[in-house]
């Protein structure tokens, strides 16, 4: 099956940037009410730059891998870049298999493309991204 690409399994088993760290500007807690998956995510900003995203994700391999990819893609980059990656990720995940994702923008995240063919799993992959954009909003960053 195309859902569990090797890269996804790798990220889910050895997630990048996992764990909650100090300091942070905003902390959010998101749940997926259909399955009970949860993520607590902290955002640490340095002006307009994402200095760190730290998180504690309780969930399936897809949601853990997606959080790991998120960390890899947005840390050290500008808030605007982070939001652009989020937009591209969301477009790919909700495309029902029509958007394979741009590797230049999404990096390892393109391995999540298979998720878009399984509508019930899209929320798993989006959970940490929704937490990330929520945290950006709470940290009062102009979008």
């Amino acid at each position: 099956m195309d859902l569990y690409a090797e890269l996804i399994l790798e990220h889910s088993k050895r997630p990048h940037g996992a764990g909650l760290r100090d300091p942070f500007d905003a902390e959010v807690h998101h749940v997926n009410p259909t399955c009970g998956d949860e993520v607590t995510l902290r955002l640490d900003l340095d002006g307009d730059t994402v200095r760190d995203v730290s998180y504690d994700a309780l969930g399936c391999s897809i949601s853990r891998a997606s959080a790991s990819v998120l960390h890899e893609l947005v840390v050290g980059r500008s808030v605007a870049d982070g939001l652009a990656v989020h937009t591209a990720m969301r477009a790919m995940l909700t495309s029902r298999g029509t958007d394979p994702g741009d590797e230049d923008v999404l990096g390892d995240g393109v391995a999540l493309a298979g998720v878009s063919r399984y509508p019930a799993r899209v929320k798993c992959a989006l959970l940490s991204w929704m937490a990330f954009t929520d945290a950006l909003g709470r940290a009062s960053v102009p979008a």
Binding site: M1, L3, Y4, T34, C35, G36, D37, G59, C60, S61, I62, Y118, R121, C124
Partner: peptide
């Protein structure tokens, strides 16, 4: 995770419930 269990079973045509 149960979601992953269910997904692999689904790939075999097996419908089970996963979650809470």
């Amino acid at each position: 995770h149960a979601h992953d269990v269910g997904q692999v079973l689904d790939d075999d045509g097996i419908a089970v419930r996963v979650g809470h």
